[in-house]
Amino acid sequence: MSALADKLRGLRRQAGVQPPAPAPVPPRARPELPDNIRQLLGIRQRAKSSPPRKVAGEPTAVPGETIAPGLQLCEARTAWPPMPPAFHAAFARIDAVIDPARLVLFDTETTGLAGGTGTRAFMIGVGDWHEGAFRERQLLITTLAGEAAMLDHFASWLRPDAVLVSYNGKSYDAPLLKTRFRLHQRACPLEGLMHIDLLHPVRRRWCGAWENCRLATAERQLLQVVREDDLPGAEAPAAWLGFLRGGSAGSLHRVARHNSQDLRSLGGILHRFAADDDASACV
């Protein structure tokens, strides 16, 4: 085996291919917020010198419980965000009154942004309002072979009248999942479902008013959410890959928390739109 590897290495060097880039580049520091904004937002100045905070007793086990080979499920219920009233989805350019029981909020964590058939979701987070609480269910694969079971579980949670809610999911998460269902030769359960992609109404309403319309901005502006020890989305692929290659499961917990916050913010933003609609409908 190594004979071929050596030979190929030699030939590639002769062909002028530079050796593959070494270890992944360290994450870029996010720009600090200007002082005035930080004050406005009530964010405390953090000591600049403090090293990244290690959560004491970061668990080493994989998050959630194993429900199929290579597939974990994390489930949680929270009181926030509250269930929105029934609303007319005109803000999302959908002419229908939506019963909140039909809503399925979803957000994926993926192995990258390259697109095409080589990118996969390793975590699918789903939120809905169930028995009076906000329910989060996160599917996480710990082996590549677990993907089929993850897709099947996810599909089983979607009723034919489900209304999807996402942030940029129409152009990112949904096509990506569609590709994965295709590759596993399964029908795509997202096909034909109503889909409220909150990115677009947010853009329509606040484009130009905010520095951008990313979920992190929207949740801060609309919900005053402040994330704690958040794993930047861009680092999620490395966290999962590290685990897959035999590394620690520690950072998977941070990925799960990040995804969970995304889901709750999604619920909060939706509530905000739905409540606005409700208020205007009452006038």
């Binding site: 990258g112 942004l113 390259a114 058939t117 080589g118 990118t119 082996t143 590549l144 072979a145 692929p237």
Partner: peptide, 13 residues
Amino acid sequence: EGERFEWIADSYP
């Protein structure tokens, strides 16, 4: 993984 080789990198070869 087992008998399969799957693409895992974040790149578009």
